[in-house]
Nucleic acid binder design. Structure first.
Lengths: 410, 410
DNA sequence: GAAATAAGTCAAATCAATTGACTTAATGAA
DNA sequence: TTCATTAAGTCAATTGATTTGACTTATTTC
């Protein structure tokens, strides 16, 4: 008889691990809190908090600040996170280039490096990537003490969807990378625990740690890159779906319209790929970013017409996201130059009516998120930090069930 | 200084509560398991399981069965859930009628009752509803021992979206009910803990407990009722969104097409409301269900043409759901007569290509779910059972954060 | 009949949180 | 100045669920 597994149990170890994460989460949200504050925020007793904070201080994850008097009673001693308490590496693999970034516990970027990917597919590319990771790691070691114990992992961000039959290939995907044992190779080559996210999910991870979704439990990042996707923060955690492909909104088929007799995926109509096509530009051109910037600043009519058309589709996309996810806010992110992203953001307005159109909203329906081209890599780097330190159900359970997406241990 | 709350901590109580839920979950999934099986399934030690099972047995939630010999070693003593270990009441409020249903721990229906809602809005309706609940409760008391201790709650299912500005009203909504303090009134009138779900979410809750989503952690129920919505099972739990309105897919605006010059919401094109309009039928007619059944069995051409048109939209909806949620399966549910739902199900096929179109799928992309008109009420009844007994993050935490949706304590 | 295997129990140990009393350090009122 | 009040934080003992490791029981296999 085969036993269906279900959820696993927990014990004091799980309790303790969770409570440590809760302390870190509260400090991340508030900047600094006293032990008494932490007790109130977490619902634990002063004594429990005291013990945990002592531990965290010993582990070098928190430090005390000068005591502050704020009224009657003994002054409180605030604590804050120690940025150097942990480090992580993020790796972005794009179609023509790759970026590596190192962050600390706070998500502050410490090292970054990028390079073009050589032709010849992943077999060649992965060596370049490993070299670049090694280079970043070395540089990081120069500025980070105790790096080896404090480097909590590596996460790769690349365009999805993942794990599809390879004959599904078209120009919009990166089929060769899909069939390559990337995570295993990286885990073996770095000795780190390796995770994988699609680029929109990475953006959401970044926005949650240091951006517009900081402290927000229900948010969706609409990411306009070469393709287009949505990064989903649901119940305070990234949602990856059954196969790690949740949010691949760019592959949603749109009904035929006057101009287009056939159903076509959203990302054929609104993505940087469609812009490049519209402009007859070569996406492999390393100067494309600058060139785009120039075009935008000159109010190029071809760009303007694309913005209008794309914004129309994205406006619909925002309404769809609001309708389906009921998030507290939607965040527009893009790998495009900031000025262009702003144009798109402006052109999406006014938004279509939706259930999000309620009184007393705390957050705007649509916000502008990170527009830094490094934000995807940053999100990748934030993932291991989040995995190691954020309170989450899977961290309490005994047999660590993978919380969606994939991760591979070395 | 205001402290941002973040997640709360936990303690042994949370651990214990979680482990009890894990046992119940494993038994629900497997039907019967020995203590040793449970230890393997949960990752806990034999001893811990033994203690917990002893407790659960004392509480009347599990019982042992005859020992079975299955090879070498001492025979094992399997345990199963006791159906009479808990009860819950589900309440469905529809536009013209209301249903009340009582279930046990296994989700088996014990009592059901329905009645038409009087005109005059919620102020009148709620008295009828409370009477009906009282009637069901009395009947349940006749067949359920220790009912008062074992009745874990009541959940209301009604069409969403919830909490919108009331001037958003149109014929598709139930605006008067939105502004009425329904949950408070029910909590006061019954003394029970009261929760609220939209009808699609209730359907998903039912499918997860006793239907096609049993044991599935990522599933979406596409519910075709008077309106149309999606019930989201993500990470094994119902997802309700930031304001309890996640999945209101019927309000997604569709682009204009040849026949329709304006954007219009999906549920204007594919829902029973659109069918009634198409047939010039009165949705308040209590014999409508039977009449529809007759029409379907007679291959009525008006029904057939609606099915074709609606299926076209729903086919798109399924592809969209797959693309956005990446679920393990999509489940089609409906309050329509079973024969009609089957017609729709068939007409949706063949499905559009999507990322769900992968080799080695364990579950079909689209499954037929419950078609019983009582399934929404059943799902509502399943909610308090799930809330009380399913393993979930919020059950571990100290200050019971509402896990999405609303619930009100008496 | 003995060895192997597996289910399940017993009793002690472990360990994180809780409890309640206590200490420390500030403010504010008499 | 004095003393009550308030709040932060510690101390020491208690609690309680899981773990540990040895043990018992029951069955099959050789």
């Amino acid at each position: 008889m085969r036993v269906i597994r279900g959820k696993s149990g927990t014990n004091q170890e799980g309790t303790s691990a969770h409570n440590r994460r809760v302390m870190i989460d509260a400090l991340r949200l508030n900047g600094k809190l006293s032990r008494a504050d932490l007790a109130r925020a977490s619902g634990l007793t002063k004594q429990a908090v005291s013990n945990i904070i002592d531990d965290l201080e010993q582990d070098g994850l928190v430090v005390s600040l000068a005591a502050v008097r704020k009224g009657r009673g003994q002054p409180s001693t605030p604590y804050r996170l120690v940025p150097e308490g942990a480090f992580a590496i993020g790796l972005q693999i794009d179609r023509y280039m790759t970026r590596v970034i190192a962050v600390n516990l706070l998500g502050t970027v410490l090292v970054r490096a990028e390079t073009n990917l050589p032709p010849g597919g992943p077999a060649n590319g992965v060596r370049v990537i490993l070299d670049l990771v090694q280079q970043v790691r070395k540089e990081l070691a120069g500025i980070a003490e105790h790096l080896e114990e404090r480097l909590v992992g590596l996460c790769v961000a690349m365009p999805g969807p993942f794990g599809l039959a390879s004959d599904n290939d078209d120009q919009w995907m990166m089929a060769a990378w899909q069939s390559f044992p990337l995570l295993e190779t990286l885990a073996a080559g770095t000795g780190l625990e390796v995770a994988l996210q699609n680029d929109a999910a990475a953006c959401a991870t970044a926005e949650r740690m240091v951006g517009a979704a900081h402290g927000v439990d229900h948010a969706v990042c609409l990411y306009v890159g070469y393709g287009i996707g949505a990064g989903l923060i649901l119940n305070g955690e990234l949602y990856a779906g059954g196969n790690g492909n949740a949010g691949e909104i760019g592959m949603a088929l749109l009904p035929p319209t006057a101009g287009r007799p056939e159903r076509s995926p959203l990302e054929h109509r609104a993505s940087l790929a469609s812009l490049y096509q519209h402009l007859n530009a070569d996406p492999a051109d390393p100067k494309l970013h600058d060139r785009l910037n120039t075009l935008v600043s000159k109010d190029d009519p071809a760009v303007a017409s694309w913005v209008d058309a794309a914004a129309e589709e994205l406006r619909w996309g925002v309404q769809l996201i609001e309708t389906i996810f009921d998030p507290q806010t939607v965040i527009l992110c893009s790998s495009a130059p900031e000025a262009l992203t702003r144009r798109i953001f402006d052109a999406i307005h006014p938004l279509l009516p939706s259930i999000a159109n309620r009184r007393g909203r705390a957050l705007p329906r649509l916000q502008l998120g990170m527009t830094d081209p490094w934000s995807v890599a940053l999100g990748a780097a934030a993932e291991p930090i989040s995995r190691a330190f954020d309170p989450r159900f899977s961290a309490i359970l005994k047999t660590r069930a993978s919380a969606g997406g994939w991760n591979v241990q070395p």
